[in-house]
């Protein structure tokens, strides 16, 4: 019984999956087109940008920090990608430069948070403004439209009838998942967020872990920028704005706790897909699209509040259990003490 409870605490991503399947079935029962495999692939493809950014954000959230600069990092990356491609640069050079942009910004965020001890929300909020400004300066506020066709076609390459961007997403989720759960260093991200003082005392490289988390977050935003250009085919001057809050909402929906140390990239990925699914499902239910945000906001609140109540209940239960077992120990000891 006990171990069952612990498993539920651990397997938060399972509950989001169940919820999502239930939602699918519900919408499917209204409109059977929704559950057909083409639609599903389309939905997943539509969520890839959110999903990739949610992976990076998870690293930061696990260490009990937050990164709100990713929307503008994504925008700048997309702009860099677009202009380089338009100027005829080699694909390898483009990818490399874009990735560098993301990593460098993430690195600066990380240094600010870990070494200069600036609260993460302030550091990344400032960075949000800086990067957004850089992007507008860089593009001079213009849209980038003349993206070469070969690049746009990459998005339409299908392997096993699944589009290429989805494979990127799947690949990244798997890599991140394996890194976080199977390697020693990956576990440090959890430890730092779970109990920073404890991690420090055990001699874990707390600051390095934090910096790395922000670099990964910046990287993921850069990759999202690459995919954005591929999928959409042009870069507007508002690209990525407001994305940061959607990404955080998706990660939270997927069971990643803002308090750190809890959650997984698979959960965050599922959260991103669920977020997109809710938005797209309304069309299938013949509800006007302007209900989108209202419903996703409401669901987010309900899920988060419900989850907090549930966690509280679980903790109380386990405390109860612990008390009982402690009582038994006491009795044992006393019975031992008497003879």
């Amino acid at each position: 019984m006990k171990s069952f409870l612990y498993k539920i605490i651990k397997v938060r991503e399972l509950s989001i999956l169940i919820l999502m399947v239930a939602y699918f079935l519900f919408v499917g029962s209204i409109n059977s087109q929704f559950t057909n495999s083409n639609t599903i692939v389309l939905l997943v493809n539509g969520s890839i940008i959110l999903l990739v950014m949610a992976i990076g954000q998870s690293f930061v959230l696990l260490t009990a920090n937050i990164d709100v600069s990713i929307g503008s990092i994504m925008g700048l990356s997309a702009a860099v990608c677009g202009t380089l491609l338009a100027s005829g640069a080699n694909l390898g050079v483009v990818v490399f430069s874009v990735i560098c942009v993301g990593a460098v910004i993430g690195f600066v965020n990380g240094i600010g948070v870990s070494y200069l001890k600036i609260p993460a929300i302030i550091m990344t909020l400032g960075m949000l403004g800086v990067v957004r400004g850089l992007m507008l300066l860089y593009t001079k506020g213009m849209w980038i439209e003349n993206i070469p066709n070969y690049y746009k076609k990459i998005a339409r390459i299908e392997i096993l009838s699944i589009p290429f961007p989805v494979w990127i997403g799947v690949f990244l989720v798997l890599i991140a998942y394996l890194f976080l759960t199977k390697t020693k260093f990956g576990r440090y991200f959890y430890a730092v967020g779970d109990n920073t003082d404890g991690a420090q005392l055990l001699g874990l490289p707390v600051n390095t872990v934090k910096v790395l988390a922000f670099i990964l977050s910046g990287l993921s935003a850069a990759i999202a920028g690459l995919i954005f250009v591929m999928n959409i085919g042009f870069v507007s001057n508002q690209t990525g704005s407001g994305m940061e809050l959607q990404v955080i909402a998706a990660a939270v929906l997927g069971g990643v706790a803002l308090t750190g140390g809890m959650g997984s990239v698979i959960g965050a990925g599922l959260g991103a897909i669920f977020f997109t699914v809710i938005n797209s499902s309304l069309v299938f239910m013949k509800i006007p699209a302007y209900w989108n945000s209202a419903i996703s906001g409401l669901l987010l609140i309900l899920i988060v509040v419900g989850d907090s109540r549930f966690q509280k209940y679980l903790k109380e239960r386990s405390r109860q259990n612990q008390k009982n077992s402690l009582g038994e120990n006491d009795r044992e000891k006393q019975s031992k003490a008497i003879p």
């Binding site: 955080i248 909402a249 209202a294 996703s296 906001g297 609140i301």
Partner: peptide, 10 residues
């Protein structure tokens, strides 16, 4: 964050 979406939606 949740109510941000909710209120904008409303």
């Amino acid at each position: 964050l949740g109510t941000m979406f909710l209120f904008a939606g409303i």
